[in-house]
Structures are given as C-alpha cells and as structure tokens.
C-alpha cells in the first residue's frame, strides 16, 4: 500500500478503491445469489471473511472490469460504477448497486493529500462491506433468474475502450433507495447505495 506517515498517494488510493470494488462486487454477487454458492471461496480481508468467486470466467470478467476501473481512477475520470441486476426473462431492471466516486482533482500521482491513517480507511471500508452484506435482510428476494451488467459513468471526453461500448443508463422506475456509509481515502471518496424495485403488494 502506498500510504505512509505523510499521506496517501493517488496510486495507493486507486489500489485501495479497486480492491474494495473487487470485494464489494464479489460479495454482492454472492449475497444476491446471482451465482451458485459453490462458486465462491472464503477470503480474509479488512478483518472480515468475504466470499470471492472461484469461477474462472467470472474472475476474468471482474479482472477486466477492475483493471479498467483502476485506469479510470488513476485518470480521475470515473464518476460512478453501477452493478445492474436484471430479470433474464423480462429484462426488467430489479436492482442497482451504485457506487458514486468523487475524485480529488488536485492530487497528482506523486503528491500526497492530507494525513489519514490507513487503519481508519480500512475501518471505513469494513463498515461499507458490512452494510453490503447486511443489506440482504431488507432487499426483496430475487425470485426469478437474474443476470448482471456493469456500467461505468465517465467523463464525456474519455475514450471508450475496446472492452466496452457506450449505452444509455439502465434505471429503475419508482425505485426504493438505501444509502450506505461512505469511505474516503482523501483522494477518492466512494458513496455506495442500492436501488431496488418495490413489489406492488408491499
């Protein structure tokens, strides 16, 4: 980790945020039952036991996503990372896991920002991950088979890489919204939230 006594660098912050996204996406996929349970293995991170995928295809996909996100984080052009869950049959959007990212534009790759302890940042990340894990209690069960989509909101001028294509936003009409705690590395601030479709009978 690129954190030292004086502060955290852009690289270090990017590394931390990317790592968080990796664990976050994995635990969402596990908690929401998008992939079967036997495709996940336990891994210790931030003092938590987090389930991480062992499926090579999904691993590869997440790797490409995270590599791309890392690049965008370093460029400070990323604004949002959205994990969309939609019904396979009806193609209806049932859930959106949104991570808003605020980048501190003044920090360079070499310069450091204010002095925030690594432990504090890790504690904040742990709290967010705990909230993600606990969110299963209030989210409605995904009764039908669902598939996922990953969307990233970037600056308009940013070139679209080969692994991606431009599209319109996938939104949920009349969605219920629950915000999670945020965490900040002083370079990047991540605010997570989940949007879900409320059933008519509720």
């Amino acid at each position: 980790m690129q954190a030292n006594k004086t502060g955290i660098t852009l690289k270090g912050s990017t590394q931390m945020v990317t790592e968080f996204f990796g664990f976050g996406l994995n635990s969402i996929l596990y908690q929401r039952g998008v992939y079967p349970d036997d495709m996940f293995t336990r891994k210790e991170a931030y003092g938590l036991s987090i389930l991480v995928t062992s499926d090579p295809k999904l691993e590869q996909f997440l790797k490409t996503v995270l590599d791309q996100v890392r690049e965008w984080l370093l460029k400070k052009v990323i604004k949002k990372l959205v994990l969309v869950m939609k019904n396979v049959k009806t193609e209806e959007i049932v859930e959106r896991w949104v991570f808003n990212i605020d980048c501190e534009k003044q920090v360079d790759s070499e310069n450091t920002n204010s002095k925030k302890e690594l432990k504090d940042i890790q504690n904040e990340i742990r709290a967010v991950l705990r909230q993600i894990i606990a969110s299963v209690t209030f989210l409605p069960a995904l009764e039908d088979t669902c598939t996922i989509d990953v969307q990233v909101y970037t600056d308009k001028d940013e070139e679209t890489p080969s692994c991606c294509y431009e599209s319109s936003a996938l939104l949920i009409k009349d969605a219920e919204q629950v915000k999670f705690k945020s965490f900040s590395t002083t370079v990047h601030k991540v605010q997570g939230m989940v949007e879900y479709k409320v059933k008519d009978d509720e």
Partner: peptide
C-alpha cells in the same frame, strides 16, 4: 459525462 457498458459479461 457518458455511460459505458462493459462487454463480455459471462452471465449474460
């Protein structure tokens, strides 16, 4: 801003 969609999603 613009929305970018990631290709090659294994599930889809």
């Amino acid at each position: 801003s613009k929305v970018i969609h990631l290709k090659d999603n294994p599930l889809s």
